[in-house]
Design a protein around this nucleic acid. Structure first.
Lengths: 196, 196
DNA sequence: CCGTCGATGTCACTTGGTGCCATCAGCGTA
DNA sequence: TACGCTGATGGCACCAAGTGACATCGACGG
């Protein structure tokens, strides 16, 4: 038998999600989380750079999946189409753990400091997507702008998906959001706003 | 004579910018900043919610200026054109203090934790712009997407402007970036990427 | 002259986060 | 068998961010 129960990192993540949901983020100390996981504060900070990070451990998987989707898109796809392919691939990451994703999102939505970190992760993802696009031969600033557009689409679609679990498929929502972005940025002002 | 020298907030901002530039962000304590401003740590936290916030005091002015520009755009302007009008108006905010804006940006670029806060401010700005667009009669999600697009444009243009002070006018750079975004999101893949 | 107000200081305290060293099971090796 | 190494963890002291409660004191109006 090992001296220590395995899966410390996972236990910390689970304990944190539970405690944050029960008491709120600020009302939970790192020592609390560690205690529930049968560990100490010191060990917590060996796995996570800071208290918020425990909620974002999965973001690397999302990034890897999305990048693979972008790179695997057909060679003739436009930059934004490649981004769309990445988004489609990453939908699976969320759909595999819908309840956990929902609880986590509710937490993030309720705490500005967590939104800050979430945006940082999205920005990192955007940078990675832009790099993947450049690898496909897309020049700057097109790559960066297309990647940012992808983040907007993801945000809008995910919001809708999380707010209505019985509703549409995440993949459909992603496609709809892309179409809406295209309509908004079309040069010809197809639908001028009505006067107020 | 007043008991206390006036302008405490401004002195704190200046002291912070100096010290951060001299020693770096983490190497400067709040007590250091307060001491240079002739105040105490406690007073610092009466003016700023946290240590980072001292670098973002000007963001409210930017928001107000941009919103005014959006609302004052011609009624027949498309959502994205209204955003462009707001960006054009806000260029003046930066151009009035180019050196200070540059030093501040160099700091932010060097510290991920400051980038996190900057993104939060941009997100707040995006939300305000989206609200202004809705006031103009633009529906969601077009308003949110157009506002996000505006943030992308601002980021790209400002980066170029800050990296080359002798180069183009910020307003020109904003216009160029907008044109590039439009080109990227155009439905017809006008410029398919070359194969690698 | 007095009472209120507003800006600041003082102090104690909690908590996030880190550096350094100790502990101890497993494992290979002489 | 004994030895020593390694890797995950604990213990502890410590620093800095941030907060609450209360004190201070000049300005200002009555």
């Amino acid at each position: 038998m090992a001296r220590w129960a395995p899966g410390s990192k996972g236990r910390l993540e689970e304990a944190a999600l539970e405690l944050f949901s029960e008491r709120g983020f600020e009302e939970t100390t790192v020592a609390d989380i560690a205690a529930r996981a049968g560990l100490t504060k010191r060990t917590f900070f060996r796995y996570f750079a800071d208290k918020r990070e425990v909620l974002f451990a999965g973001s690397q998987i999302l990034e890897d999946t999305m990048i693979k989707g972008v790179l695997d898109a057909p060679a003739e796809a436009s930059p934004l189409d490649a981004v769309a392919a990445g988004l489609d691939a990453s939908a699976a990451v969320f759909e595999r753990i819908p309840d956990r994703a929902g609880r986590r999102q509710a937490l993030v939505d309720a705490h500005p400091e967590l939104q800050e970190r979430e945006r940082a992760k999205l920005a990192r993802l955007s940078g990675a997507v832009a790099a993947a696009l450049r690898e496909r031969g897309v020049a700057e600033p097109a790559a960066g702008l297309a990647a940012d557009a992808g983040m907007s689409i993801l945000r809008v679609a995910f919001e809708r998906w999380a707010s209505d679990p019985q509703g549409q498929d995440l993949r459909e929502l992603l496609r709809d959001s892309l179409a809406e972005l295209r309509s908004v940025t079309a040069s010809r002002a197809a639908r001028a706003p009505r006067r107020r």
